[in-house]
């Protein structure tokens, strides 16, 4: 524990700027993955343990599209759309078979998909790690704001995540389809009785959830290493985010992801040996004080 360093940091403008930006970038990428996870849970009550795999495959797809086209935007879109398709296939052929079944069955199917996909990645791309590399447009020196270091690429990532999150929130809140999805989360039988094709709806939810994870993988690919199994660590943190934010709450996921990002960012200065522990403590406190999470009462 280094409280002097922490106090020194929060009283220094440069440190606050640097660490806040750092926390936001960690949080926003986490939010994109967790948003898909919480959306799927909110509507289908499925805890998608394979969600980290969506992130991994999205990153690999983005890497491949980028390698072929040289376009980072196409790479990110490729990762997102590819995972939307994969989400539909995953839902239709696997998860839909265990709707309403014991959660253990869902867990087994998800875990099987994780292992299969990890091996497939090794077969297709090999066991080596990959790095997409920074797109030429972003190979620029960092900005210095109030003495703090702010990389322009991270500002782009934060903006992109905010736009995607905003579009998701608006889509769910204001569009007809969004309202149907929210209704299905509350009472799927009633939605079905109204003649709405819930099968299609559920596939759509998985497509959106997969797309969010794929976009996150693609967005992060220039600065993260691509390895088989890379989705696991992201999955763990995404679960913490969904638990803190409230299972099924997009707004909760956003707040929780940013809070976790800031905890990591400032925690590493004040509690360098206990940064991960701080995240779990935050989760435990929330579970004790408000077991449904910060925004747990909201359905979506």
């Amino acid at each position: 524990m280094d409280l002097d360093a922490l106090i020194g940091c929060v009283t220094s403008a440069s440190c606050v700027v640097t660490q806040t930006t750092s926390g936001l970038i960690v949080g926003m990428l986490l939010f994109l993955v967790a948003a898909g996870l919480t959306l799927i849970f909110g509507v289908l009550k499925i805890v998608n343990f394979a969600h980290g795999t969506f992130y991994m495959l999205g990153a690999y797809l983005a890497y491949t599209v980028f390698a072929v086209t040289g376009s980072y935007v196409l790479g990110v879109l490729g990762g997102g759309l590819g995972m939307a398709v994969f989400g539909v296939i995953f839902e239709r052929f696997l998860i839909s078979r265990v709707y309403g079944a014991n959660v253990l069955m869902q867990l087994l199917i998800c875990y099987a998909v994780v292992l299969i996909c990890d091996d497939l990645v090794k077969i297709v791309w090999g066991p080596d790690f990959y790095a997409m590399g920074m797109p030429p447009a972003f190979q620029v020196p960092p900005l210095f704001i109030a003495g703090g270091v702010v990389p322009p690429f991270y500002l782009v990532l934060i903006s992109a995540a905010l736009v995607i999150g905003g579009a998701l929130g608006l889509g769910l809140g204001l569009t007809r389809m969004g309202k149907i999805i929210r209704a299905a989360a509350v009472n799927p039988d009633m939605v079905s009785a109204l003649g709405i094709n819930t099968t299609l709806l559920y596939s759509l939810v998985f497509a959106v959830g997969g797309m969010l994870a794929g976009l996150a993988g693609g967005l992060a690919a220039p600065v993260r290493s691509l390895t088989p199994g890379m989705g696991f660590s992201v999955l763990i943190e995404s679960f913490i985010v969904t638990v803190i934010g409230g299972m099924g709450s997009i707004a909760g996921a956003l707040i929780a992801a940013v809070v976790l990002g800031l905890i990591r960012s400032f925690g590493t200065i004040g509690f360098p040996l206990f940064t991960d522990g701080l995240m779990y403590i935050a989760m435990i406190i929330i579970l004790v004080v408000k077991p449904s999470g910060l925004f747990g009462k909201e359905i979506v």
Binding site: A5, S22, I25, L29, A220, S233, T268, I269, P272
Partner: peptide, 15 residues
């Protein structure tokens, strides 16, 4: 080991 994001570590070193 295997941590996906080193941002907070890097900024800590910078500080």
């Amino acid at each position: 080991l295997g941590q996906p994001d080193f941002t907070e570590v890097i900024t800590k070193i910078i500080q």
